[in-house]
Each structure stands twice: as structure tokens, then as C-alpha cells.
């Protein structure tokens, strides 16, 4: 299977579930900002969760099917169409050769993930196919996708992918009636981000903590895959001691010198020296990934134990989903 990029979009890169094994060498995790959507797109095809996907930010892109394709997409921020027909999310899509797929901007959200049966075929760099733009490695030649790029799938398909292909193939666009209901795994409110108090939570005054847990914050214009600058109340320190650099990770909320908060995202550095007021619950990082500059949200405090329970429950739900997709083949 092969596609050609006709229009590159705002920021389109290859991402999988990230590069965890080289953090000690200061190689960022990277990977899909909304890993839940990337995994759902892969699961819908019977792929392994860590198959490479294309992360399209704010859409505005177009691709052409140079061969027949079996693809799936998930996330928010864009809708795929072919000849003005909307392609539904979260299910396998058979697209015959010679179609132009438009990736159009949607009202809510920022990022969608386009998966293909077998995953996109790019080399593994340090154990991952994710693109890390600041150092120019991983993904497709270490860079954003550009007009004219040709991308292939990896040739090894799972039995589930082969079965979907056999069932759906033909001379027209085809897809099953079912879809994965990713929404059911998300909390009721998409603009409430759950946090656990960070290591230096106690370094800030009472008013700052009240603001942190009750006021609205907005995603700043200077936000990218490394992190979001948050607009809103400033956090005032009561402890002024210098903090020695230590490990940080996506979801860490740091407070910079001027009291502004920075929410670290997928491409963040591996160590940092700003006080950490909070840590976003792992299960809510996908919600953060869908926030756009200007969007407002609130933080909700939960305990470390609740965050851990949520993470494990989410993984159980996802494992069940894999089985459910396999069952679609058996019927």
C-alpha cells in the first residue's frame, strides 16, 4: 500500500508510542501526543498499538491513494473526506487506488492519527519510529511530511488486517458498520484535566493553589509538541530555594521564573530545574493533546492512587478493545 502527500498541512509527522529506552541520554519520549487516539486507530485495523501513524495537526492536508488502502483514523481536529463523502473514524476504511483524501479542519480538537494496515514503513531509530524534529531524527527522514512524499505500509499484516482487507476490498470505498467508541473511555468533560500535586506543590502560596484548582487557564499561542505555555493566574512561590535539575516527563506542570505555568508534552526535555506544581494524570494527557491555543480548561485534583487506578483501568479497557476487534473478524 502506498500514498502520496499532496498537501502537507500545518504539522504532519510520523509518530508511534514513543522512545522510552534512551531517556538517560536525554532523548525525549516523543510519540503521539494523543496516544489513545493513535492506539485506537491502530486497533481498528488489527495493528499492534505501537505501529507508526501519521499525526496531522489541525488538518489542512491531502493525500492520494496510489494503491488500494486499508486505513483508519482517530482523534479530533480533522475530518477525512473523499469526494465530499465523510469517512467515519475509529473503524477500518478500504480506499481504492486513485482517490484523493482530504484532511479538513474540524471545530474541536487539534490532532488526528492516520494508521495503515501494518503501520507506516519508516526505519526504527533508537527503538521507535517517532519523529523528533528538534534533532532531526526518526519518522520520515527526521522531518515533517512534505508535498510529493511517498509513504508505504510495512508489508507484514496481522491476520485481523488480512481478514478486514478480504472482507472490505472492491472497487469502491467500503467500511464496516461498527466502530470503536473511544469517547466512552474519556471522562464526561473534555476541558477538565485531572492532576496529582507535584513534588514542589508545597512551594506555592495558598492563593496560588486556590487558583490552580479553581481558576480557568488557557493554552498559550507559543505551544507546541514540547509543551504549552498556560495563560491565567500566576503561581507565587513561598520557597525560593534553587531546585537542582531532575527528571521530568510529559504531563509535568512546571512553574517558570515569572510564575507562569508550562505543561510539558510529548517532545519535552528529559530533565528540568523548574518547580513542579502538578502532574497531569496519564489518562488525561490525550485530552491535553487536543487542546488548541486559546482553549480554556480547569485542573481537577485527584490523588496519586486514583491516577494509578485510572491508568490501569484504561489499559484494561484497551486490552478488551483488542479482543473486541478480533471478534469482528470471527463473526
Amino acid at each position: 500500500m502506498k500514498i502520496k502527500v499532496l498537501k502537507t498541512g500545518v504539522l504532519s509527522t510520523i509518530q508511534d508510542l514513543g522512545r522510552m529506552s534512551y531517556l538517560s541520554e536525554a532523548i525525549p519520549q516523543s510519540g503521539a501526543m494523543d496516544s489513545l487516539s493513535a492506539r485506537v486507530a491502530n486497533k481498528a485495523l488489527g495493528n499492534q498499538d505501537d505501529c507508526a501513524t501519521i499525526e496531522f495537526t489541525y488538518g489542512d492536508a491531502a493525500i492520494e491513494s496510489k494503491t488500494d488502502l486499508l486505513i483508519a483514523y482517530a482523534g479530533s481536529g480533522s475530518i477525512l473526506t473523499v469526494n465530499e463523502e465523510t469517512l467515519p473514524m475509529e473503524r477500518p476504511l478500504f480506499i481504492p487506488a486513485g482517490n484523493i483524501i482530504l484532511i479538513n479542519h474540524a471545530v474541536y480538537g487539534a490532532r488526528i492519527y492516520l494508521a495503515i494496515a501494518g503501520g507506516w514503513d519508516v526505519p526504527l531509530v533508537m527503538g521507535s519510529k517517532s519523529t523528533y524534529l528538534p534533532a532531526g531524527f526518526g519518522g520520515y527522514l527526521g522531518r515533517v511530511l512534505k508535498k510529493g512524499d511517498l509513504l508505504n505500509n510495512a508489508k507484514q499484516l496481522s491476520d485481523v488486517s488480512l481478514a478486514f482487507l478480504k472482507f472490505l476490498c472492491g472497487d469502491r470505498i467500503n467500511y464496516p458498520k461498527w466502530s470503536i467508541a473511544k469517547r466512552k473511555m474519556l471522562p464526561g468533560h473534555l476541558y477538565e484535566i485531572r492532576i496529582v500535586p507535584g513534588r514542589e506543590f508545597g512551594w506555592f502560596d495558598a492563593q496560588s493553589i486556590l487558583d490552580l484548582l479553581s481558576a480557568e487557564f488557557s493554552v498559550g499561542a507559543k505551544s507546541n509538541r514540547m509543551g504549552y505555555q498556560l495563560g491565567g493566574a500566576k503561581m507565587k512561590r513561598v520557597r525560593q530555594q534553587e531546585l537542582l535539575s531532575t527528571a521530568i516527563c510529559p504531563g509535568t506542570v512546571q512553574v517558570s521564573g515569572d510564575g507562569g505555568m508550562i505543561l510539558l508534552m510529548a517532545d519535552c526535555q528529559t530533565t528540568g530545574g523548574y518547580p513542579r506544581i502538578a502532574q497531569v494524570a496519564l489518562v488525561d494527557l490525550p485530552l491535553c493533546a487536543q487542546l488548541r491555543p486559546g482553549d480554556t480548561f480547569r485542573f481537577i485534583e485527584i490523588s496519586r492512587q486514583e491516577a494509578e487506578d485510572l491508568a490501569i483501568r484504561r489499559e484494561r479497557d484497551l486490552a478488551r478493545l483488542t479482543r473486541a476487534v478480533e471478534l469482528k473478524v470471527e463473526i
Partner: peptide
């Protein structure tokens, strides 16, 4: 266990 990150006064285990 996945990896560790050493820093000045700490070791983080992923």
C-alpha cells in the same frame, strides 16, 4: 522496568 534517568541528586526509574 524500562529505563532510568540519573540527575545530580536523584535517580528516576521508568
Amino acid at each position: 522496568m524500562i529505563t532510568t534517568v540519573a540527575a545530580y541528586t536523584s535517580l528516576t526509574v521508568f
